[in-house]
């Protein structure tokens, strides 16, 4: 499709556009590794005393945590600039999207590529691999493939959520705030198996703001704990959730864009 070809061109130019090499990059990488390490050390201190949180031991938590980190890193690489939508509206960038013979969504997604976030992906994957070793797992090739698919789908869920929440800028100007408002919920989902928070929270992060499909449900599948979910089939719906949430996010964007075209701001 032409649009995908366009997107690839955008990626190339966006790549060149991010002058993130050098000292700045390593400082950022240092920060990412350090802070996530501190998080895990604290979890480790806790789990030394308590052996398990909600029935999950330290390495299962590390797996859960790192999976989220990797998915988030993947998503950030392609969409961290979506918080700028309100800026694009004000500085005329969005108008330029509309004036060119190309899908505005593709142009939006291709505007920036934040490859610095690869650090999150690497750290996350490293965490998953370490946990894999400590848990004594032995995956077949098929299970590794499944893990990759679930990771990508987890990233898609986050992409859809970020796109949808940031598109709210078309209605209220400050899109970043909505995303910011979900920060604590995201932290919770990243750190702990959500079932310890009770049923209504599970429903919240499954059906309303489906953050749980980013790491919790994929982890249930990969660690063979699908029985813990509200329904044992639910975790297997993660790939479907990825597609649906992404489509949902795109729908919100399209709605927002048409609103912009009729109200002009």
């Amino acid at each position: 499709m032409r649009s995908l070809r366009h997107y690839w061109r955008f990626v190339r130019i966006g790549f060149a556009s991010q002058a993130q090499y050098g000292v700045d990059f390593f400082i950022g990488a240092f920060g990412v590794v350090l802070l996530n390490l501190v998080d895990l050390v604290l979890l480790g201190v806790l789990l030394q005393r308590f052996t398990a949180i909600g029935g999950w031991n330290i390495w299962e938590i590390v797996f859960l945590f790192s999976f989220y980190l990797a998915a988030m890193g993947l998503q950030n690489i392609f969409t961290v600039h979506l918080g700028q939508i309100e800026a694009y509206v004000q500085d005329g960038t969005l108008d330029q999207f509309l004036v060119r013979p190309s899908s505005p969504l593709i142009q939006l997604m291709g505007r920036e590529i934040n490859h610095g976030n690869i650090t999150h992906v690497i750290t996350g994957v490293a965490g998953v691999v370490v946990a894999y070793g400590r848990l004594g797992l032995h995956w077949t090739f098929g299970e590794w493939a499944l893990a990759v698919v679930l990771l990508v789908c987890g990233a898609l869920v986050l992409v859809g959520l970020v796109l949808g929440l940031c598109s709210l800028a078309f209605w209220t100007i400050r899109s970043r705030e909505f995303l910011y408002g979900t920060l604590q919920i995201q932290e919770v989902v990243q750190h702990y198996p959500v079932h310890i928070f009770g049923r209504w929270f599970q429903v919240l992060v499954t059906g309303v703001l489906p953050f749980a499909f980013i790491n919790y449900y994929p982890t249930l599948v990969l660690l063979g704990r699908t029985g813990e979910a509200m329904h044992p089939l639910l975790p297997w719906l993660s790939p479907l959730a990825g597609v649906l949430v992404l489509l949902g996010g795109i729908a919100v964007w399209k709605l927002g864009l048409s609103r912009y075209q009729s109200t002009g701001s």
């Binding site: 130019i13 966006g14 060149a16 556009s17 991010q18 002058a19 500085d91 005329g92 960038t93 108008d95 330029q96």
Partner: peptide, 8 residues
């Protein structure tokens, strides 16, 4: 308002 990419 420019239509060009800023950093390239």
């Amino acid at each position: 308002k420019t239509s060009l990419w800023w950093d390239v």
